[in-house]
Simulated scan of single mutants.
Amino acid sequence: MTRSPLAIIAGTGFYDLDALENPTHHTLDTAWGQARVTKGEWHGIPVVFLTRHGAGHSVPPHLVNYRANIRALADLGVRDVVAVNVTGSIDPTLQPGDLLCLDDFVDFTKQRPVTFFDGSTPEGVVHTDVMTPYHPAIRREILDAAATSGHSIRDGGVYACFEGPRFETRAEIRLAALAGADVAGMTGVPEATLALEAGLRYAAISLVVNPASGVGDADEPITMDEINAVLAASSATVLEILDDLVHTRATFPEEPDA
């Protein structure tokens, strides 16, 4: 049986996946527009890498074509997706460099196309159940990979997605905290829900890179220099977890759908 590709989606600070062997770059046409991906192998299994913001971070979060990206992955035969989200901490106990394996989200976006089922497709209007937006089996793989590679990761976390590209106000972060959110980002939704609609098994790692507005003692403006410094120090940790996850997958045959 041919193994289905594993997709890895990443954003800020993750523009290449150097671990990929024999990488080839592709622009794919979908009913929702074009998506650009890199195909290759990692530990001998097929992997598709997609960077949300394009080369050189040229696409802002509110203009990412999430529908084209997810549709392209599904068209390539992807079944499982591991995403990486760079976030600000709403929970004051979280520090830059901390990791979470997300298990829920709150959506504060306003203008993004959020579904494949907008009435223009043969399926008509479909109401998708999102009680479990992050797939338990893929979450388990992430948690096990972190443990094996010796890295700490919180089991669970609520992601608050804002429109961007501006950072959030203090009041918005207080609102998200009241909703139970642990971290804030700009790219996790509708990516997660579109993956559900497309039948993909999706889970996400959140890498905290700064305190969100007004959290803790944070009184200074959030800057990209601050974020990039944490990314430089912490991105290797994320890649080590991914490496162990892929290596473990390569050791075992692909399991049937669950």
Rank of each mutant, 00 (worst) to 15 (best):
F252K: 15
Q34M: 11
E172F: 03
H135V: 10
A203L: 05
A181D: 06
T121Y: 08
A198Q: 04
I153R: 09
A258Y: 10
L194K: 01
R154E: 01
S152H: 08
T30C: 07
F108C: 04
T93G: 09
V64E: 06
V59Q: 07
W42R: 08
E123L: 14
V37D: 06
A68S: 10
G150E: 11
H53S: 04
D29A: 14
S89K: 05
D98E: 03
A83E: 11
F108L: 12
D16R: 15
A137H: 11
L94R: 04
E220A: 14
A147S: 13
N210W: 01
V78M: 09
A212V: 02
G88Y: 00
P122Q: 09
R201S: 06
A204F: 09
G56F: 06
E41W: 05
V81A: 06
L20I: 10
R201F: 01
A229H: 08
S58Q: 10
I142F: 12
L239W: 07
T109V: 04
A258T: 12
V238W: 14
F116N: 00
G164P: 07
N228M: 12
A19V: 13
R79C: 08
E254Y: 15
T12Q: 15
I205A: 07
V84K: 00
G33N: 04
R166V: 13
Y66C: 03
T87D: 02
A203Y: 03
I205V: 10
T187A: 02
I142R: 11
A146W: 00
A250V: 15
A177M: 06
R79F: 00
I173S: 03
A258W: 10
A232I: 06
